[in-house]
Design a protein around this nucleic acid. Structure first.
Length: 461
DNA sequence: GTAGGGTTAG
């Protein structure tokens, strides 16, 4: 279909990103299109297809893929990989395998990323036994067995660590002031905010002489020393040589691979396994990236293990990406849950000064933290600021606002947000249902109260 | 350009 070759598809994609408030994706997408010019090459369609999948337009993505495939010249191995991933996400494992077969048939290399997508899909949907079937399809006979071997060895290493009990503090405990120091905030405003609650300003103790004074991570040094003394696990599988290669084969068993497996543990709530994995690759000198830290932190914060979460933050040290919005989001979420939503604005200032920006997720987190802390007006102000800056509220925003106002007894306002949500074409979800149940009960309660007060006042029913 | 991270209830 010719329409796919017109700039309309580009505009559509950008509109999708924009509509959902994915400003960062939106901007990245724009940059990519510009960088690539306007030739109809596979790479550009890959971005478009991926964008459609990620923005709830799977059908459009599949249709586009099929049309392009018929034409032949606009698809490549990555296109297939993207579609295989989407099929896995949706649990269409049979179709995913068929597509892999077709890939091989057409001579495209099935690489590590594709394999990993499939294995995660199998794992999620309880079809681990399908790996056998997968192997039959892949021309590179060693790739799947190597992944499985890597996984098995990783699990053996983790068993060795099992003497430790769950959630042992891997990291030193930090207090709020230290957290703020980690964020590099030296503002006087911060000191005012912190007030007298935290007067014992602890300077970092001088590190023991056997630790490199210049190291950004004394904890890593400690681990490194441990590795030197005992431990044979570092020979089990080699990660340090992991380098990006054109077609991702065995050389790509790197931090990306670890992040992938880490996310499986975290998704299942197995924080202890995730910690062990973290320790193992730390032992081996593999450097975690923001992605890794953010996933771990988020899981800890969700469970209320704030010390561990802040410990990770301190572990990141200088490696904190100064404008990583996901990191900041976790911090604000954590502060909110610790009852220190009042510190959010200071953290935000820091983010903005470093060139960061707020997206829909960040606004939702902030509105939630402020609302739960009873700072309803501030939450409302943020909502206005959000809309003024061109970010459309989504279902999470509205759910949060409805809940916060309901619980604060501002039922009319809560109802107003419900109406606003429906008027803007935003579909409610299962969380909305639960929240509305609560709102409904509150409204009933109020009616009942009024009804029982009225007769006493004027004698009528 | 493809795996993997950040938000809402109960």
């Amino acid at each position: 279909m010719d329409s796919y070759q017109t700039p309309w598809c580009i505009i559509l994609c950008l509109m999708e990103c924009s509509r959902r408030g994915k400003l960062r994706k939106h901007v990245n997408c724009l940059r990519k299109w510009f960088r690539m010019g306007l030739e109809p090459l596979a790479g550009r369609y890959n971005i478009l297809i991926d964008g459609l999948f990620r923005n709830g337009r799977a059908e459009a993505g599949y249709t586009l893929f099929c049309d392009l495939k018929k034409k032949g010249q606009f698809v490549d191995a990555i296109t297939f990989s993207i579609v295989v991933l989407q099929l896995c996400r949706e649990g269409h494992l049979e179709e995913a395998l068929q597509l892999v077969e077709e890939m091989e048939g057409r001579g495209y290399v099935v690489d590590l990323v594709t394999i990993t997508s499939l294995l995660i899909g199998f794992h999620k949907h309880g079809r681990w036994d399908w790996t056998e079937r997968l192997m039959k399809h892949i021309r590179d006979v060693n790739l799947v067995p190597n992944v499985l071997k890597w996984k098995a060895e990783m699990e053996v290493s983790m068993k060795r660590k099992s003497k430790k009990k769950d959630y042992t503090p891997m990291f030193p405990t930090k207090d709020i002031r230290e957290i703020m120091n980690l964020m590099g905030s030296t503002d006087s405003e911060m000191d005012t905010n912190l007030g007298s609650e935290d007067d014992r300003v602890k300077d970092e103790e001088n590190p023991p002489s056997d630790i490199d004074q210049w190291s950004s991570s004394p904890y890593m040094d400690k681990l490194a020393n441990q590795v030197n003394s005992d431990d044979h696990s570092s020979q089990l599988f080699s990660l340090s040589r992991g380098q990006r290669v054109q077609e991702k084969g065995m050389d790509s068993f790197d931090i990306d691979m670890i992040n992938t497996f880490l996310s499986i543990f975290l998704a299942k709530g197995k924080l202890n396994l995730a910690c062990k994995l973290f320790e193992i690759f730390s032992d081996m000198g593999v450097n975690p990236v923001s992605y890794t830290y953010n996933s771990m932190m988020s899981s800890f914060v969700k469970k209320g293990y704030f010390n561990q979460a802040w410990g990770i933050l301190s572990e990141m040290g200088e490696n904190v990406c100064p404008a990583d919005i996901a990191t900041y989001n976790v911090i604000i979420q954590g502060l909110g849950k610790m009852g220190r939503a009042d510190l959010a604005s200071s953290v935000l200032d820091k983010l903005m000064k470093q060139g960061g920006y707020l997206d829909v997720v960040m606004y939702n987190t902030l509105i939630n933290a402020l609302g739960k802390a009873g700072r309803i007006d501030e939450a409302n102000n943020l909502f206005e600021q959000m809309r003024a800056s061109g970010i459309n509220p989504d279902v999470v925003t509205f759910n949060t606002l409805i809940e916060v106002h309901s619980k604060a007894g501002r039922l009319k306002k809560a109802y107003k947000f419900l109406k606003m949500m429906l008027d803007s074409g935003c579909s409610p979800n299962h969380v909305t249902d639960t929240t509305l149940d609560f709102l409904g009960r509150e409204i009933e309660k109020l009616r009942y109260q009024k009804a029982s007060i009225m007769p006493n006042k004027d004698g009528s029913s």
